[in-house]
Amino acid sequence: MKYGLKPKIHANQLSLSGGVQAGVALGALSVDHLETMDDVSIATLAMSHTIGTMLPTAAYFLRMNYPPARRMIDEGCILALASDYNPGSSPSGNMNQVVSMACIQMKMLPEEAINAATINGAYAMGLEDEVGSITVGKKANLIITKPIPSLAYLPYAFGSNMIDKVLIGGEVV
């Protein structure tokens, strides 16, 4: 902290570790994982300005319970979604799959999952002024989908590639 590094803490993945409470007490930007949450840790997170970042593809790969997203939303937590892309517990960086899994397994609404994976995710890495929404002045980092019947089709059609083009800084990549 004395070096000006804001904490982002791995918490409550494998056990009721007290990590959420420790992170909140340190004023962490985010506490990440949250597969194992009890009433106290949910209430602590809900009362705080710390973002709870959920990593459903890691829970899937490790065959763990998913974070209790619905309860955390109902209690007033701030939530984000991320991939945890790593060789041991989430060898996938596919955020489309993360969003699908948040809906299918954690019962987040498509709107909730999209917000958690865009604007709230941007806050969780201090980039809310550059990315995370369609806002004048932000980077033109955009997904153009294939023709789809509705927004809910994106998480619904898990496993299908529904992306036609990706623009980064306005250029097709």
Binding site: A82, S83, T118, V131, I144, V166
Partner: peptide, 11 residues
């Protein structure tokens, strides 16, 4: 087609 902001992968 629809247009969304790209995903932000914060972890």
């Amino acid at each position: 087609q629809m247009v969304l902001p790209t995903w932000v992968d914060s972890h």
